[in-house]
Simulated assay, not measured.
Amino acid sequence: MTYSHNDYSIGWICALPLEMAAAKAMLDKPHPRLAQPPHDHNTYAVGELFGHNVVIACLPSGVVGTASAATVATRMLSTYPRIRFGLMVGIGGGVPSADNDVRLGDVIVSNPGGEFGGVVQYDYGKAIREGRLQRTGMLNKPPNVVLTAVSELQSNHLMGMSQIPQFLRDMLVRFPGMTLFGYPDNTEDILFEASYEHEVASRTCRGCDQKRVFARDARVSKDPQIHYGLIASGNQVVKSAVVRDKLGADLGVLCFEMETAGLMDGFPCLVIRGVSDYADSHKNDDWQMYAAAVAAAYAKELLSCVSVAQTENIPNALDAGIGLATPARNA
Results as ranks from 00 to 15, higher is better:
residue 5 H to G: 02
residue 6 N to E: 14
residue 10 I to C: 03
residue 17 P to F: 12
residue 17 P to E: 09
residue 19 E to G: 09
residue 22 A to P: 05
residue 28 D to Y: 12
residue 30 P to H: 13
residue 31 H to S: 13
residue 31 H to R: 10
residue 33 R to I: 14
residue 44 Y to C: 03
residue 45 A to P: 00
residue 49 L to Q: 05
residue 56 I to P: 05
residue 59 L to H: 01
residue 60 P to G: 08
residue 61 S to R: 14
residue 68 S to C: 13
residue 68 S to P: 11
residue 69 A to P: 08
residue 71 T to M: 14
residue 74 T to C: 12
residue 74 T to A: 14
residue 74 T to R: 15
residue 75 R to D: 11
residue 88 M to P: 01
residue 90 G to D: 04
residue 91 I to R: 03
residue 95 V to M: 06
residue 97 S to M: 00
residue 98 A to G: 14
residue 102 V to Y: 02
residue 107 V to K: 05
residue 108 I to K: 02
residue 108 I to R: 02
residue 112 P to V: 04
residue 112 P to F: 00
residue 112 P to M: 07
residue 114 G to S: 00
residue 116 F to T: 07
residue 119 V to Y: 03
residue 123 D to Y: 05
residue 126 K to V: 11
residue 136 T to D: 04
residue 137 G to I: 00
residue 137 G to A: 01
residue 138 M to K: 09
residue 141 K to M: 08
residue 143 P to Q: 04
residue 144 N to S: 13
residue 146 V to F: 02
residue 146 V to Q: 07
residue 147 L to N: 03
residue 147 L to R: 10
residue 148 T to L: 03
residue 149 A to N: 04
residue 152 E to Q: 14
residue 153 L to T: 00
residue 153 L to C: 05
residue 156 N to K: 15
residue 161 M to K: 15
residue 162 S to R: 06
residue 163 Q to T: 10
residue 167 F to I: 12
residue 169 R to W: 04
residue 171 M to D: 04
residue 172 L to G: 07
residue 176 P to Q: 01
residue 179 T to L: 08
residue 185 D to P: 00
residue 186 N to P: 01
residue 187 T to V: 15
residue 189 D to M: 05
residue 193 E to C: 05
residue 194 A to Q: 05
residue 195 S to I: 12
residue 197 E to F: 10
residue 197 E to I: 09
residue 199 E to G: 06
residue 202 S to Q: 13
residue 205 C to T: 14
residue 206 R to G: 12
residue 207 G to K: 10
residue 208 C to F: 07
residue 208 C to V: 02
residue 209 D to V: 09
residue 210 Q to R: 15
residue 211 K to R: 13
residue 215 A to F: 09
residue 218 A to C: 11
residue 218 A to E: 14
residue 219 R to W: 13
residue 223 D to N: 15
residue 223 D to P: 01
residue 225 Q to I: 15
residue 226 I to F: 02
residue 234 G to A: 08
residue 239 K to Y: 02
residue 243 V to Q: 13
residue 244 R to C: 11
residue 245 D to N: 14
residue 245 D to Q: 13
residue 246 K to Y: 13
residue 247 L to A: 03
residue 248 G to S: 07
residue 249 A to W: 06
residue 253 V to K: 07
residue 253 V to S: 06
residue 255 C to T: 06
residue 262 G to K: 06
residue 265 D to I: 05
residue 268 P to L: 11
residue 273 R to N: 10
residue 276 S to E: 07
residue 276 S to F: 09
residue 280 D to K: 07
residue 280 D to Y: 09
residue 281 S to A: 10
residue 282 H to L: 07
residue 283 K to D: 07
residue 284 N to F: 10
residue 286 D to R: 09
residue 287 W to E: 09
residue 289 M to T: 13
residue 290 Y to E: 08
residue 303 L to Y: 03
residue 305 C to H: 15
residue 306 V to C: 15
residue 309 A to L: 12
residue 310 Q to F: 04
residue 314 I to T: 11
residue 315 P to Q: 06
residue 316 N to D: 15
residue 323 G to L: 05
residue 325 A to I: 15
residue 329 R to W: 01
residue 330 N to Q: 10
